[in-house]
Amino acid sequence: MKILIVDDSSTMRRIIINTLSRIGYSDVVEGENGKSGLEKLGQGGVEMIITDWNMPEMDGLEFVKTVRGQNPAIPILMVTTNAAKEDIVEALQAGVNNYVVKPFTPETLKEKIESLLG
């Protein structure tokens, strides 16, 4: 399964990639913001998206809305520092399937990914 990780922090992308590899997902592509995420998505083969919210150029919310306009079915997990209730609701309304607040444990990421794929 190919997973697209969109986050402007290279450290955070590495942490997510490490966690994914530990739970058996090693086929990943990376984007630094929503814009590059869309480019990677356009190259095909992506079956799941993990995206940050706060990013330059195109933020995660705009990215999710754009993706949902093209692909209503692809599972999207938002991983962000935004913890306010209204932020979580806004992301869910935009089309994310699940939501993880940073910092997270690998167990949480695993649980959320499995619930999306299950």
Partner: peptide, 29 residues
């Protein structure tokens, strides 16, 4: 002005400290 978090008051420092809160909002939604 890049997209930034709306507040840092709720930004956690301990892993999963906001998990229960986020999960409750998701469930309610």
């Amino acid at each position: 002005r890049p997209s930034i978090s709306h507040t840092i008051a709720q930004t956690g420092t301990t892993p999963d400290e906001n998990k229960a809160h986020a999960d409750a909002v998701i469930e309610a939604f």
